[in-house]
């Protein structure tokens, strides 16, 4: 519990630093970062460790909670638990379950789209010149290569029928229709997906509110969990206890708060580009 919990705290810091780049409001900067996070082998290994940690932490937490409920088959008629313990410490199982539901839905909204959705948009730029009207191009990972959007078909069949120069294969590859040779790779536009999600005309506000509530729940989980993990590992020393506790409380407030800032910023303040 403690090791996975603290590892997940480290993960939160990493994930937060990544997410905060949204505040630059620069789609290309963010998409480049997203590409790095999904292709770098070291990051890949780290992400598998994170998936395993979440699964183990949740499974172990459920087992722990189940066993602890069984250790008191008959409860008290009158129990004044708030006299001796904090409410967050007594509800770690419930808080964790809410976080798990959040993680699953959160991954379905972004991680699964990024990894599997065939409708994942690719990043475009609009080039304006004095001579011609604005024209949209796809950005590619090959420097200097831009592919005109009106020359790209969704697949080979459509490309042949419409005589377009390129079609898209494997979600990101621009292929020459005639030669079936890859020209370049596009950038998945995660920035656009994220903004569209929280600015969704129908549900954007609901998503934003649910996200903020989830971060509140995470805060309470960490309010107890952070310092608790040190105690579980046997790291209790009068010299350092106060510092660990203070850092834990700070962590449980600052990290969820900064996470929650982002959907609020996107929904209410970000100008659509």
């Amino acid at each position: 519990m403690a090791l996975t919990g603290l590892f997940l705290c480290l993960f939160l810091v990493g994930h937060l630093i990544g997410n905060l780049q949204i505040l630059y409001a620069d789609p290309h900067q963010f998409n480049t970062y997203a590409l790095f996070m999904t292709s770098n082998p070291a990051i890949k290994a780290l992400s598998y460790l994170t998936y395993l940690s979440i699964l183990f932490h949740a499974f172990d937490g459920a087992l722990l909670t189940y066993r602890n409920v069984k250790a008191r088959p008959v409860g008290y008629v009158k129990n004044n638990a708030s006299a001796n313990s904090k409410i967050s410490s007594r509800n770690m199982g419930i808080l964790g379950t809410v976080i798990l539901i959040f993680i699953v839905t959160h991954m379905m909204s972004f991680w699964a789209v990024m990894h599997f959705d065939n409708k994942m948009p690719l990043e475009k730029i609009s080039v304006k010149s004095q001579m011609a009207p604005a024209k949209d191009y796809y950005l590619t990972q090959s420097p200097g290569e831009y592919i005109p959007v009106d020359q790209v078909a969704a697949d080979k069949k459509e490309a042949e029928a419409s005589r377009k120069a390129f079609y898209i294969k494997d979600r990101t590859e621009f292929i020459f229709t005639g030669a079936d040779v890859k020209k370049a790779d596009g950038y998945k536009d995660l920035f656009k997906v994220t903004v569209a999600f929280f600015k969704d005309p129908k549900y954007g506000l609901v998503y934003t509110i649910l996200y903020v509530i989830s971060m509140l729940v995470l805060g309470f989980h960490l309010y107890h969990g952070f310092a608790s993990a040190f105690q579980s590992l046997g790291l209790n020393h009068p010299k350092y206890n106060a510092a660990i506790k203070a850092f834990g409380i700070g962590f449980s407030i600052v990290v969820p708060f900064l996470f929650a800032v982002l959907p609020v910023y996107i929904h209410f303040f970000l100008k659509t580009i």
Binding site: L64, N68, R72, A81, N84, S85, G234, N236
Partner: peptide, 26 residues
Amino acid sequence: GNCTNTGACEIECPKGISLENIARMN
């Protein structure tokens, strides 16, 4: 049951046994 560090025991213990002992045992 298993300890989840709520700290209730330390507060209710008539002899003021500290949570430090649990950490030492861990």
